[in-house]
Design a protein around this nucleic acid. Structure first.
Lengths: 206, 206
DNA sequence: CACTATTGTGAGTAATAGCTCAGGTCTTTG
DNA sequence: CAAAGACCTGAGCTATTACTCACAATAGTG
């Protein structure tokens, strides 16, 4: 798979409002279709149909199917869903309170559409470009968490980087599962246990 | 997607040795092809080519492509990779030792071929039958872990079921990531931190 | 060896997907 | 208002895929 840089570039830059509107219709339609049918079965024709535009129009704004999912992912990232950890700094209470804020934050990220998010994460044909974008955001997030931990007096772990990595991923993925799994345990129960686990880990009492 | 019971049944039962051999060639070839190309791009023709048999033969043993992945998954499960937790009972040492055994166990499950396992988990078109099989195994595993926790004097958590669920998933998924992610942190570091997190959670010192 | 059952072959089929293009409609502009 | 350009349409092209079938080769049996 060669990383062709132009594979995800839009074909035309909308200049009129109606064009921008069409572009958005395509994206929202795609979000629904992918969420409902999955990526493979979420055909471009279906997307066009749902968006109530012709396939031709679709291909004026997106050079190929992959580019649509990519745009969806970028949109998700740019909306700040993954990197709004700044406000966590504003809650300097107990360690547990901080962790709780972290977990709540993660849950908020997944409220929109867990099914779509799952597909974006698991089925998306990730180009090198996209992978890099995601990776850098991930790194940023981990760094933020790391700094947060560094500033907190109660945190006692061997290695801050590893700890930040571990808890970030653990919180993220558990939340992900919680929202996506149909027969998952109750939200509140699971949330409090998750918070406890992370808190106790960070507190470091052996 | 209707859950057609016959969708995954083999088309012919091998009676001669060479037939059984062919069946195995197909499965190993499929494992390689899926691991390398993913499920969608892992075409049946490619599998047949790699197995050095004709597509016709392939379809004599598997009614469709999905059935091949299903067989691979069943194979993986039947090899006991997901439910050999019995031996954990044999390590009645400290809580940390028990947890360590749990984590090591998980790591062993993923040694074979993380890439293939990822595809089986994330891309497999899971029929209801398969889903049920997996689910029951999962439940069994969680129950085993639950009993393990129940028997250990140092475990202090609000709800054993939730705890078993949480740590089982967390250990599993973190291991999964550890093995699959190319630029993941060092194994030993991550392992010990993961063990600490779970242990401290279970010990329950607030 | 002769006959049958089992196993193997691979060109070909049907279905479907992603995507194009010739031509139409709507907006803007001078 | 008319020309130019932006935008939209959808039948259909091309490529690919899962899968079939008529036949050939091989193994078992008496």
């Amino acid at each position: 798979m060669p990383a062709d840089d132009r594979r995800l570039q839009p074909r035309r830059k909308p200049s009129q409002v109606r064009a921008e509107l069409t572009r958005e219709r395509i994206l929202t339609a795609a979000a629904h279709v992918f969420a409902e049918h999955g990526y493979a079965a979420g055909t471009t024709n279906r997307i066009a149909e749902r968006a109530r535009i012709s396939i031709g129009s679709l291909y004026q704004y997106f050079p190929n199917k992959d580019a649509i999912l990519a745009a969806l992912l970028i949109q998700h990232i740019d909306r700040g869903a993954w990197a709004q950890a700044d406000r966590l700094d504003l809650s300097p209470g107990s360690l547990k309170a901080t962790v709780r804020a972290l977990v709540r934050d993660a849950i908020d990220h997944h409220r929109d559409d867990p099914r779509l998010l799952r597909i974006m994460i698991e089925e998306a044909p990730l180009s090198q470009e996209l992978l890099d974008t995601i990776d850098s955001h991930q790194k940023l997030r981990v760094a933020q968490v790391r700094d947060l931990l560094a500033r907190h007096p109660d945190v006692r772990v061997r290695d801050l980087d590893t700890a930040a990595n571990l808890i970030n991923f653990t919180v993220e993925i558990n939340t992900h599962r919680l929202m996506a799994d149909p027969h998952a345990p109750a939200v509140e129960t699971f949330e409090s246990e998750l918070i406890d686990m992370v808190t106790r880990y960070l507190a470091g009492s052996e």
